[in-house]
Design a protein around this nucleic acid. Structure first.
Lengths: 154, 154
DNA sequence: AATGAAAATCTTTCTCA
DNA sequence: TGAGAAAGATTTTCATT
């Protein structure tokens, strides 16, 4: 990750459909050298994949909720984590500091779907002790674009 | 958003670099008809943009934190929201139900950066009454791939 | 590693249904 | 709105520095 890779990655986060002609200007390299750079970023899994930014309303999952989960101590959590990974509605599952064990980020069609999901898919899991559900009423900002640190050689 | 659009969007969420040849198989249409479909999905802003999935460690922002923010009543929050939108470290800013006003999702380089950011960029904002910071210790799942509901005509 | 040009591939446009 | 073919653009490969 030198300065050129950094510039490429910043440009591709804004516009993943940018062509090599455009990217070569960003990189200050020829088209073929730029293509080689992008290929190596993929090989090193700095770029893990290519995605689209999809409108959640159009996708039919306008409801955004966060769910804190506390587990009974002692029981392993592997089953719980595996279950969360399987559900499409679970966009994120983090282990967290503080009073709770997990924080989930969910996207669902509506409140009825949330009710069903939390009571069955989450609270139905073995080991779950308590949950707390928080609804997002609005999202002034929601991006997957990461801040990219200044270049440090790798 | 008919069944074909839905299939296209599901395929593109998995692989945004899929070519029209591959997508036309998914859609069950010719290449040109598929190209027209994708173009219309962009025009209708169902597809809002093209992105890469970037490794946060390689990007230099391995630390993930959630920050709850309570505001003093009465003061407008427009300034706070505008400030959060400007900061790259703030990936998400949601207004939420419950005891807090906002939930922020932050990505930063390290704990020192988090300390500085929360005390200055967040707690330094006019109107902020209290904050609570939660660290993610691990993220068994973190995706931006949305669940796409069964087709409903638009 | 990078360049420039040739070759291969993919996307876009256009006509017709 | 879709299919197929031609035209145009882009990506990939390769020889060279």
């Amino acid at each position: 990750m030198d300065e050129i890779d950094r510039n490429l990655v910043v440009a591709l986060q804004e516009n993943g459909a940018a062509g090599l002609a455009e990217l070569s200007k960003v990189a200050g390299l020829s088209v073929s050298a730029t293509a080689e750079r992008v290929k190596r970023l993929e090989e090193r899994e700095v770029i893990r994949g290519w995605r689209i930014d999809l409108d959640p309303v159009a996708a039919g999952c306008p409801l955004l909720a966060f769910v804190f989960v506390a587990m009974h101590p002692g029981d392993g959590d592997a089953g719980f984590v595996a279950a969360m990974k399987q559900h499409e509605a679970v966009l994120e599952c983090h282990t967290v500091t503080g009073a709770w064990c997990y924080l989930l980020k969910l996207r669902l069609a509506d409140i009825a779907g949330l009710e069903t999901f939390v009571s069955q898919a989450v609270r139905g899991q073995p080991g779950v002790a308590r949950t707390e559900t928080i609804l997002a009423l609005a999202s002034p900002k929601e991006t997957a674009i990461l801040p990219v640190a200044e270049a440090e050689e790798e």
